[in-house]
Every structure is written in structure tokens, then in C-alpha cells.
């Protein structure tokens, strides 16, 4: 592919302009189709923050909501953790069966891959609603919704970790005559453990945020209590809830980062 430099640069410039025009076009078309006015949108932002500053600010009065909020938040974090841990236990077995490195055969691998991406792509809303129908308004519903969602994500993540990090050592131990389970426990698991843990921590953070959505839909945990305050116009209490969520999520993120720094 010999091109003159001048031609190449012109071509590149043209290409860039085309991409920018395409994206701009999509934006304009999208705004029109959705009836979204960019100017109104941008004006709304400062307005929203001014409004937040006045009405969403927790007052001395909203302190009385704190114990209740706190209790729900702890409950939500516990649900996020337990659903992630159970999902991780299930996923590690499935990932071992389904990864290209440790998997049984290509048929099982294909099945596992398909099932995992199917699970991952079913919207959380759908899980929440159909579980709500059978399990009613209970913590268990929230737990199951988060569990099913997490399983889909973790299976794929774990399979990628195994394939990236363990294939070479797997081969070396196989060559010494070690048996399948010896290789798994002596080479694969020790090698991938830190990455696995890192993903579990990430999934916990994510599940705390997702639990809010599940909570609004299924009437559990922190999402439920926010929804109640929000719908009954007790905005100071709603603001307090948001503040509590921010603190907990950032605390979790900070702790996770510290743990990662030590283990990786």
C-alpha cells in the first residue's frame, strides 16, 4: 500500500472529518427523535444543583431519619456482599468447566459461554420483577436478583482471567504428570486468586449501586427507603439517603483499592 505522504494525510484528515460528522449527525438526529433540547438540558443542570442546594440539603431535623437509613444501608451492603460471594462460588466452578484452558470439551465451553452471556444480558429490571412476582417483597428477592446478574458477569470475567493468567503454568504442570485436580489447585487457583478477589471487590461496589435500583423496584433496602422519602416529598431525608450512599460507596471503593494494592 504505497501512498504519497500528502495523500495519506489528506485521507486521514478526510476520515477524521467524516467520523466527527457522523457522530454529530447521530447526536442531532437522536436529540430530534427523542425530543431532547440540548440548550434546555444544559440550562437545567445549574438549576438542578441550585435546587438541590436548597431542598435536598439535610437539616438538623432530618437527623432523626439517620438510624433508619443507616440500618437499610447496612442491610443493602450485606446483600451486595453475600450475593457477590455466592455468585463467585458458583461462577468459579462454571468458569473452570467452561474456560478454554481448563474446560472439559468444546461443547461444554460453548454452552457455558452462551449461558453466561444470556444471563448477563437479561436486564436487571426483568430479574427484579419476575422474582418479585414469585418471592414477594422480601430481602430474598433482592438477593436473588443481584445473584443472577452477578453470575453472568463473573463467569465471563473468571473465564478470561483463567485464560489470560493460567494457561502457561497449566501446561507446565500437566507436563510433570500432575493430575487435573492437582493442576487446578496447585497452579490455576493460586495464580488467579488475586485477580478473582479484585473482581469480587469490584462486583460488590457495583452491586451496592445496583441494589438501589433493585430496591426501588422490589421494595427492599436503601432503594425502597429513598423511594418512600422521594415520593412523599421529604427531600431532606432523600438527600440524607443519597449522602449516606455516597459515603458508603466511596468507603468501599477506597478499601478495595487498598486491598488491591496489597494483593496484586
Amino acid at each position: 500500500m504505497m501512498q504519497s505522504p500528502k495523500k495519506y494525510l489528506a485521507h486521514k484528515g478526510w476520515h477524521q472529518t467524516a467520523v466527527i460528522a457522523l457522530i454529530g449527525g447521530i447526536y442531532v438526529f437522536g436529540s430530534w427523535a427523542l425530543n431532547f433540547n440540548s440548550v434546555d438540558g444544559f440550562i437545567a443542570v445549574p438549576k438542578a444543583f441550585a435546587w438541590l442546594g436548597i431542598y435536598f440539603r439535610p437539616t438538623a431535623h432530618s437527623m432523626e431519619y439517620l438510624p433508619k437509613i443507616w440500618q437499610k444501608l447496612i442491610q443493602t451492603v450485606l446483600l451486595a456482599i453475600s450475593s457477590t460471594v455466592v455468585a463467585a462460588i458458583v461462577s468459579i466452578f462454571v468458569a473452570l468447566l467452561g474456560s478454554k484452558v481448563t474446560g472439559i470439551n468444546s461443547f461444554v465451553q460453548t454452552i457455558v459461554r452462551g449461558v453466561a452471556s444470556f444471563f448477563r444480558n437479561i436486564p436487571l429490571v426483568a430479574w427484579s420483577m419476575i422474582l418479585l412476582f414469585s418471592f414477594k417483597q422480601s430481602d430474598f428477592t433482592g438477593f436473588l436478583a443481584l445473584l443472577l446478574m452477578s453470575i453472568g458477569y463473573l463467569i465471563r470475567a473468571f473465564m478470561e482471567i483463567i485464560e489470560d493468567e493460567a494457561s502457561e503454568t497449566m501446561l507446565a504442570l500437566k507436563a510433570t504428570g500432575a493430575s487435573y485436580f492437582q493442576v487446578i489447585f496447585q497452579a490455576v487457583l493460586p495464580q488467579i486468586l488475586p485477580s478473582i478477589l479484585s473482581w469480587i471487590l469490584y462486583m460488590i461496589e457495583n452491586n451496592v449501586r445496583d441494589a438501589t435500583l433493585v430496591g426501588i423496584l422490589t421494595g427492599t433496602g436503601i432503594g425502597f427507603i429513598f423511594d418512600i422519602y422521594y415520593k412523599s416529598f421529604r427531600f431532606d431525608a432523600a438527600g440524607m439517603t443519597v449522602l449516606a450512599i455516597i459515603i458508603v460507596v466511596i468507603a468501599l471503593e477506597t478499601i478495595s483499592n487498598q486491598i488491591r494494592r496489597v494483593i496484586l
Partner: peptide, 9 residues
């Protein structure tokens, strides 16, 4: 790890 081939599972 070189001994694994000699050991029980």
C-alpha cells in the same frame, strides 16, 4: 510442583 506426578491426587 515437579513432585506432583508422584503424589496421590
Amino acid at each position: 510442583h515437579g513432585r506432583l506426578g508422584y503424589k496421590s491426587t
